[in-house]
Design a protein around this nucleic acid. Sequence first.
DNA 1: GTCATTGTACTCGGATAAGCGGTGTCCGAGTACCTGGGG
DNA 2: CCCCAGGTACTCGGACACCGCTTATCCGAGTACAATGAC
Lengths: 159, 159
Amino acid sequence: MRMSEGVEWALHSCLNLSWIETGEAMTAARLAAFYDLPAAYLNKQLQALARAGILASTPGPRGGFRLARPLDRITLMDVVTAIEGAEEAFRCEQILRAGPGGGPHVDYRESCVISQTMRRAELTWRRELAGQTLADIRDTVESRFPGTPDSTRAWFART
Amino acid sequence: MRMSEGVEWALHSCLNLSWIETGEAMTAARLAAFYDLPAAYLNKQLQALARAGILASTPGPRGGFRLARPLDRITLMDVVTAIEGAEEAFRCEQILRAGPGGGPHVDYRESCVISQTMRRAELTWRRELAGQTLADIRDTVESRFPGTPDSTRAWFART
DNA sequence: GTCATTGTACTCGGATAAGCGGTGTCCGAGTACCTGGGG
DNA sequence: CCCCAGGTACTCGGACACCGCTTATCCGAGTACAATGAC
Protein backbone atom coordinates (compact mmCIF):
# COMPACT_ATOMS: atom_id res chain seq x y z
CA MET A 1 0.00 0.00 0.00
CA ARG A 2 1.89 2.98 -1.20
CA MET A 3 0.84 6.52 -1.96
CA SER A 4 1.88 7.99 -5.29
CA GLU A 5 4.96 10.14 -5.11
CA GLY A 6 3.01 12.66 -7.15
CA VAL A 7 1.40 13.72 -3.88
CA GLU A 8 4.74 14.89 -2.53
CA TRP A 9 5.49 16.73 -5.77
CA ALA A 10 2.09 18.39 -5.76
CA LEU A 11 2.35 19.58 -2.17
CA HIS A 12 5.79 21.08 -2.63
CA SER A 13 4.79 22.69 -5.92
CA CYS A 14 1.73 24.32 -4.36
CA LEU A 15 3.90 25.86 -1.67
CA ASN A 16 6.35 27.12 -4.27
CA LEU A 17 3.49 28.59 -6.26
CA SER A 18 2.38 30.50 -3.19
CA TRP A 19 5.87 31.92 -2.63
CA ILE A 20 6.43 33.14 -6.16
CA GLU A 21 2.95 34.52 -6.53
CA THR A 22 3.21 37.44 -8.95
CA GLY A 23 -0.05 37.23 -10.85
CA GLU A 24 1.93 35.41 -13.49
CA ALA A 25 1.50 31.75 -14.23
CA MET A 26 4.34 29.31 -13.69
CA THR A 27 5.04 26.57 -16.20
CA ALA A 28 5.27 22.93 -15.22
CA ALA A 29 8.77 22.82 -16.71
CA ARG A 30 10.13 25.46 -14.35
CA LEU A 31 8.42 23.95 -11.32
CA ALA A 32 9.95 20.62 -12.28
CA ALA A 33 13.41 22.11 -12.72
CA PHE A 34 13.33 23.36 -9.13
CA TYR A 35 13.51 19.79 -7.81
CA ASP A 36 14.96 18.22 -10.95
CA LEU A 37 11.81 16.24 -11.62
CA PRO A 38 10.60 14.87 -14.98
CA ALA A 39 8.72 17.83 -16.41
CA ALA A 40 6.11 15.97 -18.43
CA TYR A 41 5.17 13.80 -15.51
CA LEU A 42 4.89 16.65 -13.06
CA ASN A 43 2.71 18.33 -15.67
CA LYS A 44 0.40 15.35 -15.47
CA GLN A 45 0.07 15.72 -11.71
CA LEU A 46 -0.58 19.45 -11.98
CA GLN A 47 -3.28 18.68 -14.50
CA ALA A 48 -4.96 16.56 -11.86
CA LEU A 49 -4.79 19.46 -9.41
CA ALA A 50 -6.31 21.71 -12.05
CA ARG A 51 -9.15 19.25 -12.68
CA ALA A 52 -9.78 19.25 -8.94
CA GLY A 53 -10.02 23.04 -8.93
CA ILE A 54 -6.91 23.51 -6.80
CA LEU A 55 -4.89 25.10 -9.59
CA ALA A 56 -5.94 27.13 -12.58
CA SER A 57 -4.17 26.46 -15.84
CA THR A 58 -3.74 28.57 -18.94
CA PRO A 59 -2.19 27.25 -22.14
CA GLY A 60 -0.05 29.09 -24.65
CA PRO A 61 2.83 31.51 -24.20
CA ARG A 62 2.88 33.21 -20.79
CA GLY A 63 0.70 30.30 -19.70
CA GLY A 64 1.16 27.82 -16.89
CA PHE A 65 -0.37 27.12 -13.51
CA ARG A 66 -1.59 29.37 -10.72
CA LEU A 67 -3.25 28.66 -7.40
CA ALA A 68 -6.98 28.73 -7.87
CA ARG A 69 -7.64 29.74 -4.27
CA PRO A 70 -5.68 30.80 -1.19
CA LEU A 71 -3.64 28.20 0.65
CA ASP A 72 -5.85 28.35 3.73
CA ARG A 73 -8.62 26.84 1.66
CA ILE A 74 -6.56 23.94 0.34
CA THR A 75 -6.31 20.99 2.69
CA LEU A 76 -3.88 18.11 2.47
CA MET A 77 -6.89 15.90 1.88
CA ASP A 78 -7.79 17.95 -1.18
CA VAL A 79 -4.39 17.37 -2.73
CA VAL A 80 -4.28 13.69 -1.84
CA THR A 81 -7.73 13.14 -3.30
CA ALA A 82 -6.85 15.06 -6.44
CA ILE A 83 -3.81 12.87 -7.11
CA GLU A 84 -4.83 9.54 -5.64
CA GLY A 85 -8.54 9.60 -6.35
CA ALA A 86 -11.40 9.45 -3.92
CA GLU A 87 -11.43 5.69 -3.35
CA GLU A 88 -10.56 4.37 0.07
CA ALA A 89 -7.46 2.33 0.76
CA PHE A 90 -9.36 -0.52 2.39
CA ARG A 91 -12.09 -1.72 0.07
CA CYS A 92 -14.52 -4.25 1.44
CA GLU A 93 -14.93 -6.82 -1.30
CA GLN A 94 -17.89 -8.21 0.59
CA ILE A 95 -16.54 -11.73 0.77
CA LEU A 96 -19.22 -12.42 3.37
CA ARG A 97 -21.64 -12.50 0.45
CA ALA A 98 -20.01 -15.67 -0.87
CA GLY A 99 -20.05 -17.21 2.61
CA PRO A 100 -22.68 -19.58 4.06
CA GLY A 101 -25.06 -16.98 5.46
CA GLY A 102 -24.43 -14.52 2.68
CA GLY A 103 -27.28 -12.85 0.87
CA PRO A 104 -26.96 -11.10 -2.49
CA HIS A 105 -28.95 -8.07 -1.41
CA VAL A 106 -27.06 -7.19 1.75
CA ASP A 107 -24.59 -4.30 1.65
CA TYR A 108 -21.72 -5.75 3.61
CA ARG A 109 -19.74 -2.57 3.33
CA GLU A 110 -22.21 -1.29 5.90
CA SER A 111 -23.02 -4.34 7.97
CA CYS A 112 -19.65 -6.12 8.15
CA VAL A 113 -17.97 -5.18 11.41
CA ILE A 114 -14.51 -5.56 9.94
CA SER A 115 -15.40 -3.20 7.14
CA GLN A 116 -16.86 -0.70 9.59
CA THR A 117 -13.81 -0.76 11.82
CA MET A 118 -11.31 -0.47 9.02
CA ARG A 119 -13.21 2.40 7.49
CA ARG A 120 -13.54 4.20 10.79
CA ALA A 121 -9.80 3.97 11.31
CA GLU A 122 -9.13 5.26 7.84
CA LEU A 123 -11.59 8.06 8.45
CA THR A 124 -9.51 9.40 11.34
CA TRP A 125 -6.59 9.58 8.98
CA ARG A 126 -8.58 11.42 6.34
CA ARG A 127 -9.96 13.77 8.96
CA GLU A 128 -6.46 14.58 10.08
CA LEU A 129 -5.47 15.37 6.50
CA ALA A 130 -8.60 17.47 6.04
CA GLY A 131 -7.79 19.41 9.19
CA GLN A 132 -4.46 20.63 7.90
CA THR A 133 -4.34 23.34 5.25
CA LEU A 134 -1.40 24.23 3.08
CA ALA A 135 -1.41 27.59 4.87
CA ASP A 136 -0.59 25.76 8.10
CA ILE A 137 2.32 24.07 6.39
CA ARG A 138 3.52 27.31 4.84
CA ASP A 139 3.37 29.14 8.17
CA THR A 140 5.34 26.45 9.90
CA VAL A 141 7.97 26.44 7.18
CA GLU A 142 8.30 30.22 7.25
CA SER A 143 8.57 30.11 11.01
CA ARG A 144 11.32 27.50 11.04
CA PHE A 145 13.10 28.56 7.86
CA PRO A 146 12.38 32.28 7.42
CA GLY A 147 14.59 32.59 4.37
CA THR A 148 12.65 30.08 2.30
CA PRO A 149 10.18 32.44 0.58
CA ASP A 150 12.86 34.87 -0.51
CA SER A 151 15.33 32.26 -1.66
CA THR A 152 12.61 30.44 -3.57
CA ARG A 153 11.52 33.63 -5.28
CA ALA A 154 15.13 34.42 -6.04
CA TRP A 155 15.73 31.03 -7.60
CA PHE A 156 12.77 31.33 -9.92
CA ALA A 157 13.72 34.90 -10.81
CA ARG A 158 17.26 33.78 -11.64
CA THR A 159 16.37 30.87 -13.90
CA MET B 1 -3.27 3.89 -3.06
CA ARG B 2 -5.04 0.68 -2.36
CA MET B 3 -4.64 -1.87 0.38
CA SER B 4 -4.23 -5.50 -0.61
CA GLU B 5 -7.44 -7.47 -0.46
CA GLY B 6 -5.46 -10.10 1.41
CA VAL B 7 -5.96 -7.98 4.51
CA GLU B 8 -9.70 -8.53 4.35
CA TRP B 9 -9.22 -12.25 3.83
CA ALA B 10 -6.79 -12.48 6.71
CA LEU B 11 -9.05 -10.64 9.15
CA HIS B 12 -12.08 -12.78 8.34
CA SER B 13 -10.03 -15.96 8.46
CA CYS B 14 -8.64 -15.12 11.89
CA LEU B 15 -12.16 -14.63 13.22
CA ASN B 16 -13.24 -17.92 11.71
CA LEU B 17 -10.25 -19.63 13.27
CA SER B 18 -11.29 -18.32 16.66
CA TRP B 19 -14.83 -19.65 16.27
CA ILE B 20 -13.89 -23.14 15.21
CA GLU B 21 -11.14 -23.45 17.78
CA THR B 22 -10.91 -27.14 18.65
CA GLY B 23 -7.21 -27.63 19.22
CA GLU B 24 -7.12 -28.89 15.68
CA ALA B 25 -5.49 -27.00 12.84
CA MET B 26 -7.53 -25.75 9.91
CA THR B 27 -6.23 -26.03 6.37
CA ALA B 28 -5.99 -23.06 4.04
CA ALA B 29 -8.17 -24.91 1.55
CA ARG B 30 -11.11 -25.18 3.94
CA LEU B 31 -10.77 -21.60 5.08
CA ALA B 32 -10.75 -20.54 1.43
CA ALA B 33 -13.81 -22.65 0.61
CA PHE B 34 -15.79 -20.80 3.26
CA TYR B 35 -15.69 -17.61 1.16
CA ASP B 36 -14.98 -19.28 -2.18
CA LEU B 37 -11.52 -17.76 -2.39
CA PRO B 38 -8.54 -19.07 -4.40
CA ALA B 39 -7.01 -21.55 -1.95
CA ALA B 40 -3.38 -21.22 -2.99
CA TYR B 41 -3.46 -17.46 -2.75
CA LEU B 42 -5.13 -17.41 0.64
CA ASN B 43 -2.46 -19.87 1.71
CA LYS B 44 0.11 -17.26 0.72
CA GLN B 45 -1.53 -14.66 2.94
CA LEU B 46 -1.77 -17.06 5.86
CA GLN B 47 1.91 -17.79 5.46
CA ALA B 48 2.55 -14.09 5.96
CA LEU B 49 0.49 -14.18 9.15
CA ALA B 50 2.49 -17.19 10.31
CA ARG B 51 5.78 -15.41 9.61
CA ALA B 52 4.50 -12.50 11.69
CA GLY B 53 3.74 -14.82 14.58
CA ILE B 54 -0.01 -14.31 14.41
CA LEU B 55 -0.73 -17.84 13.27
CA ALA B 56 1.08 -21.10 13.88
CA SER B 57 1.36 -23.50 10.98
CA THR B 58 1.95 -27.22 10.86
CA PRO B 59 2.53 -29.13 7.64
CA GLY B 60 1.47 -32.64 6.75
CA PRO B 61 -1.78 -34.53 7.34
CA ARG B 62 -3.88 -33.07 10.16
CA GLY B 63 -1.85 -29.92 9.60
CA GLY B 64 -2.95 -26.39 8.86
CA PHE B 65 -3.12 -23.08 10.68
CA ARG B 66 -4.00 -22.18 14.25
CA LEU B 67 -4.08 -18.89 16.12
CA ALA B 68 -0.72 -18.37 17.77
CA ARG B 69 -2.18 -16.21 20.52
CA PRO B 70 -5.59 -15.09 21.78
CA LEU B 71 -7.54 -12.58 19.75
CA ASP B 72 -7.24 -9.89 22.38
CA ARG B 73 -3.53 -9.80 21.68
CA ILE B 74 -3.89 -9.42 17.91
CA THR B 75 -4.51 -5.88 16.73
CA LEU B 76 -5.72 -4.82 13.32
CA MET B 77 -2.37 -3.11 12.89
CA ASP B 78 -0.63 -6.45 13.40
CA VAL B 79 -2.58 -8.03 10.57
CA VAL B 80 -2.19 -5.08 8.23
CA THR B 81 1.54 -4.96 8.86
CA ALA B 82 1.88 -8.70 8.35
CA ILE B 83 0.20 -8.55 4.93
CA GLU B 84 1.17 -5.12 3.66
CA GLY B 85 4.59 -4.77 5.17
CA ALA B 86 5.82 -2.19 7.64
CA GLU B 87 6.50 0.63 5.19
CA GLU B 88 4.41 3.77 5.38
CA ALA B 89 1.97 4.81 2.67
CA PHE B 90 3.48 8.28 2.27
CA ARG B 91 7.18 8.01 1.63
CA CYS B 92 9.16 11.20 1.59
CA GLU B 93 11.48 10.94 -1.40
CA GLN B 94 13.35 13.94 -0.07
CA ILE B 95 12.99 15.97 -3.23
CA LEU B 96 14.14 18.98 -1.21
CA ARG B 97 17.61 17.51 -1.47
CA ALA B 98 17.65 18.14 -5.20
CA GLY B 99 16.33 21.67 -4.70
CA PRO B 100 18.41 24.86 -4.46
CA GLY B 101 19.04 24.85 -0.72
CA GLY B 102 19.33 21.09 -0.53
CA GLY B 103 22.18 19.41 1.25
CA PRO B 104 23.15 15.76 0.78
CA HIS B 105 23.57 15.11 4.49
CA VAL B 106 20.21 16.41 5.72
CA ASP B 107 17.49 13.91 6.60
CA TYR B 108 14.47 15.56 5.03
CA ARG B 109 12.20 12.83 6.31
CA GLU B 110 12.68 14.52 9.65
CA SER B 111 13.09 18.17 8.77
CA CYS B 112 10.62 18.58 5.89
CA VAL B 113 7.38 19.98 7.29
CA ILE B 114 5.29 18.27 4.62
CA SER B 115 6.85 14.94 5.48
CA GLN B 116 6.26 15.50 9.18
CA THR B 117 2.63 16.42 8.71
CA MET B 118 1.83 13.57 6.38
CA ARG B 119 3.48 11.10 8.71
CA ARG B 120 1.71 12.46 11.74
CA ALA B 121 -1.63 12.07 9.99
CA GLU B 122 -0.80 8.54 8.98
CA LEU B 123 0.26 7.82 12.52
CA THR B 124 -3.21 8.60 13.86
CA TRP B 125 -4.55 6.01 11.45
CA ARG B 126 -2.04 3.41 12.54
CA ARG B 127 -2.74 4.16 16.17
CA GLU B 128 -6.42 3.64 15.56
CA LEU B 129 -5.68 0.27 14.00
CA ALA B 130 -3.36 -0.64 16.84
CA GLY B 131 -6.06 0.24 19.37
CA GLN B 132 -8.52 -2.28 18.01
CA THR B 133 -8.00 -5.95 18.68
CA LEU B 134 -9.62 -8.82 16.87
CA ALA B 135 -11.32 -9.65 20.16
CA ASP B 136 -13.13 -6.31 19.95
CA ILE B 137 -14.32 -7.20 16.48
CA ARG B 138 -15.36 -10.67 17.54
CA ASP B 139 -17.31 -9.35 20.53
CA THR B 140 -19.16 -6.85 18.39
CA VAL B 141 -20.03 -9.48 15.82
CA GLU B 142 -21.26 -11.90 18.47
CA SER B 143 -23.31 -9.14 20.02
CA ARG B 144 -24.98 -8.13 16.78
CA PHE B 145 -25.17 -11.56 15.17
CA PRO B 146 -25.29 -14.07 18.07
CA GLY B 147 -25.73 -17.02 15.74
CA THR B 148 -22.46 -16.49 13.90
CA PRO B 149 -20.14 -18.65 16.03
CA ASP B 150 -22.47 -21.65 15.98
CA SER B 151 -23.33 -21.43 12.30
CA THR B 152 -19.67 -21.03 11.42
CA ARG B 153 -18.70 -24.04 13.50
CA ALA B 154 -21.56 -25.97 11.94
CA TRP B 155 -20.47 -25.11 8.42
CA PHE B 156 -16.93 -26.31 9.03
CA ALA B 157 -18.18 -29.44 10.74
CA ARG B 158 -20.45 -30.20 7.80
CA THR B 159 -17.89 -29.80 5.02
C1' DG C 1 1.50 55.77 -37.41
C1' DT C 2 -2.20 52.38 -36.89
C1' DC C 3 -4.41 48.32 -37.77
C1' DA C 4 -5.28 43.81 -39.58
C1' DT C 5 -3.13 39.44 -40.95
C1' DT C 6 -0.03 35.95 -41.00
C1' DG C 7 3.31 33.17 -38.91
C1' DT C 8 5.67 31.30 -34.95
C1' DA C 9 6.82 29.71 -30.55
C1' DC C 10 5.13 28.15 -26.42
C1' DT C 11 1.91 25.83 -23.05
C1' DC C 12 -1.30 22.60 -21.46
C1' DG C 13 -3.88 18.26 -22.44
C1' DG C 14 -4.68 13.77 -23.34
C1' DA C 15 -3.28 9.60 -25.77
C1' DT C 16 0.39 6.31 -25.84
C1' DA C 17 4.49 3.00 -24.08
C1' DA C 18 7.64 0.87 -20.22
C1' DG C 19 8.34 -0.95 -15.28
C1' DC C 20 6.88 -2.85 -11.17
C1' DG C 21 4.20 -4.66 -7.39
C1' DG C 22 0.05 -7.21 -6.41
C1' DT C 23 -2.45 -11.34 -7.98
C1' DG C 24 -2.72 -16.03 -9.01
C1' DT C 25 -0.74 -20.78 -9.76
C1' DC C 26 2.20 -24.74 -9.35
C1' DC C 27 5.27 -28.24 -7.64
C1' DG C 28 8.55 -29.85 -4.02
C1' DA C 29 9.92 -30.80 1.15
C1' DG C 30 8.33 -32.72 5.08
C1' DT C 31 5.14 -35.13 8.17
C1' DA C 32 1.43 -38.07 10.15
C1' DC C 33 -1.25 -41.84 9.22
C1' DC C 34 -2.38 -46.36 7.29
C1' DT C 35 -1.10 -51.01 5.82
C1' DG C 36 1.13 -55.16 6.02
C1' DG C 37 4.19 -58.42 7.98
C1' DG C 38 7.00 -60.32 11.67
C1' DG C 39 7.76 -61.51 16.54
C1' DC D 1 -1.91 -59.37 20.31
C1' DC D 2 1.87 -55.95 19.81
C1' DC D 3 5.50 -53.74 17.34
C1' DC D 4 7.98 -52.09 13.39
C1' DA D 5 8.93 -50.82 8.54
C1' DG D 6 7.39 -49.09 4.28
C1' DG D 7 4.25 -46.67 1.54
C1' DT D 8 0.91 -43.11 0.85
C1' DA D 9 -1.67 -39.05 1.10
C1' DC D 10 -1.85 -34.63 2.73
C1' DT D 11 -0.11 -29.97 4.24
C1' DC D 12 2.60 -25.92 4.12
C1' DG D 13 6.32 -23.36 1.77
C1' DG D 14 8.47 -21.02 -1.61
C1' DA D 15 9.49 -20.51 -6.64
C1' DC D 16 7.32 -19.31 -10.93
C1' DA D 17 3.79 -16.76 -14.58
C1' DC D 18 0.17 -13.09 -15.26
C1' DC D 19 -2.06 -8.69 -14.94
C1' DG D 20 -3.24 -3.98 -13.77
C1' DC D 21 -1.65 0.33 -12.01
C1' DT D 22 1.92 3.62 -11.36
C1' DT D 23 5.48 5.83 -13.79
C1' DA D 24 7.17 8.07 -17.79
C1' DT D 25 7.01 10.00 -22.46
C1' DC D 26 5.36 12.07 -26.69
C1' DC D 27 2.75 14.66 -29.98
C1' DG D 28 -1.43 17.51 -31.04
C1' DA D 29 -4.87 21.54 -29.93
C1' DG D 30 -5.01 26.03 -28.76
C1' DT D 31 -3.25 30.64 -27.57
C1' DA D 32 -0.52 34.88 -27.12
C1' DC D 33 2.93 37.34 -29.16
C1' DA D 34 5.85 39.17 -32.96
C1' DA D 35 6.57 40.30 -37.65
C1' DT D 36 4.85 41.92 -41.83
C1' DG D 37 2.37 44.56 -44.94
C1' DA D 38 -1.70 47.53 -46.18
C1' DC D 39 -4.07 51.75 -45.33
